[in-house]
Amino acid sequence: MSILVQFVIGLVFGLGLVIAGMSDPAKVLNFLDLAAIPSGGWDPSLAFVMAGAIAVTFIGFKLVLRRSQPIFGGKFHLPNATEIDARIVAGPAIFGVGWGLAGFCPGPAFTALTIGDNAALIFVLAMLVGMAAARWLASRPAKLIPATPRT
């Protein structure tokens, strides 16, 4: 049951992306192209996607988090890190360059798998390799700082 529900929730997410037009990298790139504002080529749609999503999530999260636990049990897994470290700037900076190069972020890349051609598949496979690399790098112990001081 929980698996089926998560499929439906993913489906709603994907339908949102397709209806919003975000499954089309051209639309994303035309949003990011601020220099096209004077010529009329700028497409502000993505800002409306963000506004619609945040409006619903902002209110919805508040309501949901009044519960003592999620419907399918367990607990609420909320990120509790607050430190502004190098990774929270470097990661998104790298991500943004890739996003600007092809117009794909992870969600839209998945929606493009079925209606796009092999191009979307190439992107998704490379993306998974990049993700695995980042997780591997992040899981390595910091060698420069020994866990126990040598005596």
Binding site: G91, G98, W99, A102, F123, M127, G130, R135
Partner: peptide, 13 residues
């Protein structure tokens, strides 16, 4: 682009 998006998104959580 895929490598950068994948790496950057996981590195930046």
């Amino acid at each position: 682009a895929g490598l950068l998006v994948g790496f950057g998104s996981v590195w930046g959580n």
